[in-house]
């Protein structure tokens, strides 16, 4: 019985990665929920837009590296390129809105028409990303890769089991926290943020109160762009950049937003962590943890893995199905029906 070693092993292979993954999902799901509550459609281009934003950051990173400007304070160069990525993506999303979505808003098209339009944008975005990046994997993480390594941890604590904290993971968790706090401050304390909430609550009354819907829409896309670029960059630093993986994030992001309640920002965050921990927990091989926890002689002889990793989408899907069956409004009662 060595609970401490069990905990360390669990943290290293499950808790920390899940926390990082959950933070990345949360930033993405927040964007989905914001677009849903303001523009009122399911934004299918979300994953691919995230990929394009990350591609822009990678482009900036390569440029900076070529200039010899690298690794500020040992952190990844990509951090310096984020402002560039933000500018590109804000411009991209606002242009997409102007060229595509604005017309459908004007003619008061059905939400599904807007979803369809977002499919078109998805195709275009997808094509642009691949034109620049191809389909293969790009790694752009540099700087000190670890805050502390397994060996350092073991030497320091004297435990048998080691634990590492990668800078990308730590960065992800801290950034997500800061961004979430900033977002809630913006939504609850500023005039623009409140006008967004008002617009989401009651469009007609917001109009009557003199809130300019086009401005609200612009702010929404801008915030979405920020969330997307950060989420995409952090995900890419953590796991490497492959455009298709970003597309596949669509499902867990939607699942998180629906689980939390579409239209509820706090719900999107909670939903994202639930999805992340469920995915990781169910596809994690618990053998080591139980080897430490069980009394001698009773150690498990299998991997103790509930599902193979290939089925992580099945976990997300199961969560989605359970929510749809039992509580379609989500945990925090989103806008539904």
């Amino acid at each position: 019985m060595e609970p401490l070693n069990a905990l360390v092993s669990l943290s290293n292979f499950m808790l920390i990665p899940a926390l990082a993954y959950g933070s990345q999902l949360a930033l993405g799901a927040l964007g989905i929920t914001l677009i849903f509550s303001i523009l009122r459609f399911a934004h299918f281009a979300h994953g691919d837009t995230m990929a394009l934003g990350t591609a822009a950051v990678i482009g900036g990173t390569l440029f900076l590296q070529a200039q010899g400007i690298t690794e500020p304070f040992g952190l990844p160069t990509a951090l310096l390129a984020i402002p560039f990525g933000l500018l590109v993506m804000i411009a991209y999303l606002l242009t997409a809105d102007k060229l595509v979505y604005k017309y459908f808003r004007k003619v008061k098209a059905k939400p599904l028409t807007l979803v369809m339009a977002s499919l078109g944008v998805m195709f275009v975005t997808n094509g642009i990303t691949r034109l620049f990046m191809g389909v293969g994997e790009t790694r752009f993480e540099d700087g000190n890769r670890f805050l502390f390594t397994v060996r350092e941890f073991r030497d320091f604590t004297g435990l048998a089991e080691g634990m590492a904290l990668r800078s990308a993971q730590a960065l992800t968790i801290i950034t997500a926290l800061v961004v979430m706090v900033a977002l809630f401050w913006f939504l609850n304390r500023t005039r623009s943020g409140k006008s967004m909430r008002a617009y989401s609550d009651n469009e007609d009354l917001a109009l009557l109160s003199g809130i300019n819907p086009e401005r609200v829409v612009m702010i929404t896309w801008t915030i979405t762009a920020i969330l997307l670029v950060l989420a995409g960059t952090l995900y890419g630093l953590d796991k490497g950049f492959r455009p298709f993986n970003y597309f596949q994030l669509l499902l867990p992001m939607f699942a998180a937003a629906i689980l939390g309640g579409l239209g509820s920002p706090i719900g999107a965050i909670v939903g994202a962590y639930v999805v992340a921990f469920a995915e990781m927990g169910i596809t994690y091989a618990w053998r080591r943890v139980f080897t430490y926890l069980m009394p001698e002689g009773l150690e498990p002889n299998s991997m103790m893995q509930l599902l193979p990793v290939d089925y992580k989408f099945a976990v997300t899907f199961a969560i989605l199905v359970i929510v749809l069956l039992f509580r379609p409004t989500g945990i925090f009662k989103g806008k539904v029906l």
């Binding site: 499919l119 078109g120 944008v121 998805m122 034109l131």
Partner: peptide, 9 residues
């Protein structure tokens, strides 16, 4: 991909 997206839009 780009062409298809543009066609759809």
């Amino acid at each position: 991909l780009l062409t298809m997206g543009v066609a759809l839009l």
